[in-house]
Design a protein around this nucleic acid. Structure first.
Lengths: 227, 227
DNA sequence: AAAGTAATATGAGATATCTCCTATTTTGAG
DNA sequence: CTCAAAATAGGAGATATCTCATATTACTTT
């Protein structure tokens, strides 16, 4: 992790996030791919706001299974749960690309933040979307088999008609075993919805995948991305 | 649905929820058991705050499956998603006991509410807990079989060592088929963890159920209720 | 370049969960 | 009180998903 200093730091400071002035003590942190921004179980000292990059939220269960709760992107907050709640089990946050965040040491600012309308309004919207998103994922995971959820995930993450996410990550995210994920991917290939090329999967029958994914729709709304 | 008037109404008004004064236009609504406070797919005109009673949040999927997303209790907000987001698929909210809510018609107040520190702070905390809770339920549902999740649910809802939730509701909540729920309940009876008495299930081996439920622990924190 | 670790692949068998069907009991409305 | 609808109950077979075992290939690190 690198802490930006001087001009490099100044480049990234933003002032629309808070009514109060906190820029003086705001740090700018850069994390490498795979680096842990927050370690699971260890309360962070900073409230983060992601400026660029991507990260993943993980939790480890007692039986050893690991769940990838969600992806984090630019303009998301990290550490807001610890700011708001004294009692909270801290999830692990891992950068999946180079990630640059604003980092505000919140112990000194906590009271002020909780009285800052601009900050609270933004955070409220962020949390409402996050909460809705989790509820949607939850109900979908219970109501539909992997076939539908995977089709949706492929359409969401494919770029130029090519899907090439890491299987291990996808297992943790969709909550299924590696074995089963492969099985369903193979089914898609057998049906010629996908074609495997090296380690990539090329989308052949977009309409069929869309049909499978379409079944999930009802709820969420933030699903407009096309392949 | 009954709208309280006069003194009956005044009894329920609260003033700690907002900095601004909105009591003048605040209504007090009472809903009967099974009545829909909000109908699925229809945007509500009110922001509600539950004073007493219990309710359930439902969503219907395209395949006809119904998910009980969560339970609502006193001091929860309802309709906050629609206040915050212009685009949102409205979930259905059904009272499961007589429920009394404060109801604020939000179109006229929206801007003021989004500038009200007291309100935003409370709502932020509410949403952070809600979001965490959904994330926990989501990962648990993927990481553990019904056996563990049901044991936990039984311990959470049992009263005086007696479990008597309606099977149909529990199916929607835990996201499993009626058939399978019965199957696992029967297993618990076969193992003498539970004993069926009429339509109730009496907890015989509390420790065994706790052992099954314990495996879920790691994450959430709001789980302190004992049987 | 070697060696260790992470990721990919696949088979075979187990188990968790679902669907469909049918029957009985309870509940609620008129 | 009666009837229809909702809820409970369980059999039988299908399918979605998991576990474990074993190779092979790709990436890091020394």
């Amino acid at each position: 992790m690198e802490i930006y200093k001087g001009d490099k730091r100044l480049n990234y400071l933003q002032d629309h996030l808070f009514s109060i002035s906190v820029t003086e003590f705001m740090e700018v942190h850069e994390y490498q791919r795979d680096e842990w921004i927050i370690k699971e179980g260890l309360r962070p000292d900073f409230l983060y706001y992601v400026i660029e990059g991507k990260a993943k939220i993980y939790v480890t269960h007692q039986n050893g299974k690991v769940s990838l709760i969600n992806f984090i992107n630019a303009n998301d907050y990290i550490g807001e749960m610890e700011l708001l709640n004294d009692v909270y089990y801290t999830k692990g946050i891992q950068a999946s690309t180079k990630t640059i965040c604003l980092a505000l040491p919140f112990h000194r600012y906590r009271t002020q933040l909780l009285n800052d309308v601009t900050f609270l309004r933004e955070l409220t919207k962020f949390l409402s979307v996050k909460s809705t998103h989790m509820a949607t994922k939850y109900t979908q995971s219970l109501a539909f088999p992997l076939e539908n959820r995977l089709a949706d995930f492929i359409l969401q993450t494919a770029d130029q008609g090519i899907y090439k996410e890491k299987h291990v990550t996808v297992c943790d995210y969709l909550g299924v075993s590696y074995r089963h994920l492969l099985h369903v991917l193979n089914q898609f290939c057998d049906k010629h919805y996908l074609q495997k090329v090296g380690r990539e999967y090329h989308i052949i029958k977009l309409d069929k995948l869309q049909e499978l994914a379409e079944v999930l729709r009802t709820a969420d709304v933030v699903n407009t991305r096309q392949v």
